[in-house]
């Protein structure tokens, strides 16, 4: 068993939410991703046992979606938008400065496992373009300079929990609109912070 008792319990709670066990596959893959920073084969075996489908069926889903990572990510997953609205607002320079700072090409992770860099399609923040996500927490209105500052900050501070609002305050610019709910939780690895499956993290301060 590669999963600790606690994680298995959490998985079982999630499975309970669905009428068919196999429907819990998506969230369970996030648990696996949060555990190792990628979907390991050990986790696939574990999930297949938990929900009663074969390993290769789990693998099929895990390898289909790009938010499930096959390779281990760094502590911070930098997803820089390259779609049209951001492109018009010069995301190219943001992309280039992040690339320069980290020395990474698309989908690469540095040797210290601090950063993983990826260029992504629209992340739904067009009003605040150009936009970037750090561990799926969004910052809008970035400039090349601010993005480098952000990377430096991440590298030095190594915050355990990333919260969108904090990033926005520190490094963001124009914001598309204020989110209706004030969101104080963030995420701690390359997994979006979902309250219902427990990947959302409270920043302790």
């Amino acid at each position: 068993m590669s999963w600790e008792k606690e994680l298995v319990e959490k998985a079982n709670e999630i499975i309970e939410l669905y009428p068919e066990k196999r429907s819990a596959l998506g969230p369970l893959l996030y648990l696996a991703q949060e555990k190792d920073g990628h979907i390991s084969n050990d986790s696939i075996v574990e999930i297949s046992n938990l929900i009663g489908i074969t390993e290769v069926q789990v693998k099929s889903v895990a390898s289909f979606y790009s938010m499930y990572k096959e390779e281990q990510t760094g502590k911070y997953l930098l997803s820089v938008c390259k779609s049209i609205s951001c492109e018009i607002n010069d995301s190219r320079s943001v992309i280039n400065s992040v690339k320069d700072f980290t020395g990474l090409e698309n989908y690469e992770t540095d040797t210290d496992k601090v950063f993983t860099f990826e260029e992504v399609e629209c992340i739904g923040a067009c009003g605040g373009a150009p936009a970037v996500q750090v561990n799926y927490e969004t910052v809008e209105g970035l400039t090349p300079e601010k993005s480098i500052q952000m990377c430096e900050w991440l590298k030095e501070e190594r915050p355990n929990v990333i919260v969108a609002e904090e990033l926005q305050d520190k490094f963001g610019g124009i914001k598309s609109f204020d989110w209706a709910i004030k969101d104080n939780t963030g995420s701690s690895y390359s997994v979006p912070g979902f309250q219902n499956i427990g990947t959302a993290k409270e920043k302790s301060k």
Binding site: I44, T54, V56, Q57, K59, S66
Partner: peptide
């Protein structure tokens, strides 16, 4: 079901675990 489609798009392939 010990074979499935793995990956997506141009990389899609049949494979085993």
């Amino acid at each position: 079901p010990l074979i499935e489609f793995i990956q997506r798009g141009n990389k899609t392939q049949v494979n085993t675990f």
